[in-house]
Write a protein that binds this DNA or RNA. Structure first.
Length: 425
RNA sequence: GGAGAGAUGGCAGAGUGGUCGAAUGCGGUGGUCUUGAAAACCAUUGUACCGCAAGGUACCGGGGGUUCGAAUCCCUCUCUCUCCGCCA
């Protein structure tokens, strides 16, 4: 949620930057500002009346202690009753207008960073760098769904039987490889200073709201109606919400967390080729990194996160590229996002495996996540997060990239986790 | 799931209708003293909104109500604790 103060003091700048997303929000913002103006004047009126009635109540108390029968009391009571009627009306008005302001603010996406490239579609994203490993294998390359069947790594059919499409069952060495990747990612992240967490996989409404899944992505989450809880679409939600409603000391920062969790996404509207195999699932596993930072340091923090995730991709030996998202492709709550994509030789295309974002104050404003800076001033924190990494597409790319005629090689760094160096028949 | 008790500032803990944003202790910060430190003493120490400021308003788990006046009374929700039941 954008801060209304920012909106009123930098109106034209905010409007300009929001245009990168491909829409003009100037009239929405004007409406919000005039609502806020109105809100202030109502509140002023309200406060004055409250003050008066408070004074009267005090006066009654004083008279009461000396002369219970004083005729003044009745008169004052009446006066206060009248005031109360006015206050009631003003407060109803105030509540209404505050709700309108909040609703309006929630509809505004985050302000894109000035460096965000112009553009409306995926092809407008800016490729920062590409690192492609040369092929050493010249036989026919199979896509991962064929390999999963051949080596019995994943049972898609029975996943569909047991739950539905998009719920694969890993088995045998497939399951072991999956588990090894989780451990490997967590170890790499903790070695880089992130503290490991294992959060709840269900969250309440406040948490879903805090990180911006509600109300924007309501239909994309699984909801448990009995208890009004949501299955998490990413562990960013429970982890970031740990710090909701907090004023941290500047020397508590940065807070760096990493966590594994399954992620549940309804993915309503997806179909066809894009969802084949492991490409798009309703339940998938992910290791996430979250960082809470001082405002001045978040830019550097984002760069560090990128370097860290990149070092993992290099270690795994995958071909990858780093992409800076254009305004049109930028997520609703993000100000600046970089994606890592790995090259899938079996499908001959790039697949997103990590999305690293700086949300600046957009999440923290909702979360009321603040810190006291060195001068004692209270400010909103900056929040950042990224996948480090998302499992299924790494899994599929590994088996596609390192397939040989009758076996699959396991990358060196993973072997101490898997306990085997290849998958064969 | 059943029965009971409770939720107050960073923490502990008073306060059961009037001048309470809230005693007291601990902790934090600043100072005095000291070569330095400790101790002692003094001062200070919540958040949000409005206002140039002075100042005003709201907040004692959340929401609603009674009253001229609510931390205090009533309703409701959530959470915590104790006992019983069930259970990996």
């Amino acid at each position: 949620m954008i801060e209304i103060k920012n909106l009123s003091s930098n109106t034209s700048r905010v409007v300009e930057l929001l245009k990168k997303r491909g829409s003009d929000f100037s009239s929405d913002i004007d409406t919000l500002l005039s609502l806020d103006h109105k809100r202030k004047s109502i509140q002023k009126n309200n406060d004055e009346r409250l003050n008066k009635s408070k004074q009267i109540a005090k006066q009654i108390g004083e008279i009461f202690s000396s002369d219970i029968k004083s005729p003044l009391i009745q008169k004052l009571k009446q006066e206060s009753s009248n005031l109360k009627e006015e206050i009631k009306l003003l407060q109803a008005e105030l509540k209404e207008i505050e709700a309108q302001i909040k609703e309006g603010l929630l509809k505004l996406p985050n302000i894109p960073d000035p460096s965000v490239p112009e553009g409306s579609k995926e092809s407008d994203n800016q490729i920062i760098r590409s690192v492609v490993n040369e092929k050493t294998y010249s036989e026919k390359i199979y896509p991962h769904w064929d390999l999963c069947e051949k080596y019995k790594l994943i049972d898609f059919k029975n996943g569909t039987k047991v739950t539905g499409s998009g719920f694969p069952i890993y088995k045998g060495k497939g399951s072991k490889l999956q588990r090894s990747l989780i451990s490997y990612f967590l170890d790499r992240n903790t070695k880089h200073g992130y503290e490991e967490y294992l959060p709840p996989f269900l969250v309440n409404v406040e948490s879903a709201f805090g990180t911006g899944q509600l109300p924007d992505k309501d239909s994309q989450m699984y909801h448990i109606s009995n208890d009004n809880l949501y299955l998490i679409p990413t562990s960013e939600v429970p982890i970031t919400n740990i710090y909701r409603d907090n004023v941290l000391a500047y020397n508590d920062l940065p807070i760096k967390c990493t966590s594994y969790s399954p992620c549940f996404r309804r993915e309503a509207g997806s179909y066809g080729k894009n969802v084949r195999g492991l490409n798009r699932l309703h339940q998938f596993e992910k290791v996430e990194i979250v960082e809470i930072q001082e405002q001045e340091k978040s830019e550097q923090a984002l760069n560090n996160m990128i370097k860290h995730v990149e070092s993992i991709l290099i270690e795994l030996g995958l071909s990858y590229r780093l992409v800076k998202l254009c305004g049109g492709d930028l997520g609703f709550t993000s100000s600046l996002t970089y994606d890592f994509e790995v090259f899938s030789p079996g499908q001959n295309k790039w697949l997103e495996v990590s999305s690293i974002s700086n949300f600046k104050t957009y999440q923290s404003n909702r979360l009321k996540l603040r810190y006291k800076d060195i001068s004692g001033k209270i400010k909103l924190c900056h929040t950042l997060n990224g996948s480090s990494l998302a499992l299924p597409r790494i899994f599929s790319t590994i088996i596609e990239t390192f397939q040989k005629k009758n076996f699959i090689e396991i990358p060196k760094v993973l072997q101490k986790y898997t306990g085997f160096s290849k998958i064969d028949l």
